[in-house]
């Protein structure tokens, strides 16, 4: 089966300290994968790399066999759940939920329905 996500020889370093070095991971469609490890081992870094919040110093990230390494966050269409919820404090509950739908050009009736 072809992997949905593929991390190839990924290396990430902060302040000359390696967080990930030649890291490889393949995740198939429909699989539930948990990343376990001690604090500072690179779990969050891996997730942030997949989401596009940070760029790898080296290596490739493939999604459905396409190179997503340089694709910006807003073009990836990946969901990301933040530890602190990351709600928009200046918006109402409705507008918080509608934020992404509006960016996807959903109609007003569609947004209200959802």
């Amino acid at each position: 089966m072809v992997a949905l996500f593929t991390l190839q020889d990924i290396s990430v370093a902060y302040n000359k300290q390696n967080i990930l070095k030649d890291f490889n991971l393949e995740i198939e469609k429909g699989k539930l994968v948990s990343l376990l490890g001690p604090s500072g081992c690179g779990k969050t870094t891996t997730l942030r790399l997949i989401a596009g919040f940070l760029q790898a110093n080296d290596g490739k990230f493939l999604f459905k066999e396409k190179d997503y390494t340089k694709v910006p966050v807003n073009k990836r269409n990946f969901g990301f759940v933040f530890q602190n919820y990351a709600l928009f404090p200046h918006l109402s509950i409705f507008d918080n939920i509608a934020f992404g739908l509006r960016l996807r050009k959903n109609s007003k009736t569609e947004i209200e329905k959802k």
Partner: peptide, 13 residues
């Protein structure tokens, strides 16, 4: 992190 949340929902920088 709310800035990152907005970007992950499709907003440009």
């Amino acid at each position: 992190s709310i800035e990152e949340a907005a970007e992950s929902l499709g907003a440009s920088k």
